[in-house]
């Protein structure tokens, strides 16, 4: 079951990270986003952090363990946005 916010985040990830061959259906909400699963890299992590800041006003610390946890998969990312969004 994919929520509206998860759908929105999938599109944000595809657009921001220029994933030219990926569709929203390709992103499994429970699969890892980084290295395995979708296969994003460290530059993507920084880029995604910037997109979350621009879109939802969420400030993240690049080197914190919390950020690592939030970026684990799409569901944890959606939880982060729900809890911390200011716009």
């Amino acid at each position: 079951m994919t929520t509206e916010l998860e759908r929105e985040l999938k599109q944000l990830i595809i657009d921001t990270l220029e994933l030219e061959d990926v569709t929203p259906e390709d992103i499994d909400p429970d699969e890892p986003l980084f290295v395995e699963g979708l296969g994003l890299d460290s530059i993507d992590a920084l880029e995604l952090g910037l997109a979350l800041q621009k879109t939802y006003g969420i400030q993240l610390q690049a080197d914190s363990d919390d950020t690592r946890r939030h970026f684990a998969n799409l569901r944890t990312l959606a939880t982060l946005v729900e809890e911390r969004r200011v716009k």
Partner: peptide
């Protein structure tokens, strides 16, 4: 404005 890390790279 913040710089895009991917663009910078």
């Amino acid at each position: 404005a913040p710089l895009s890390p991917a663009r910078f790279g």
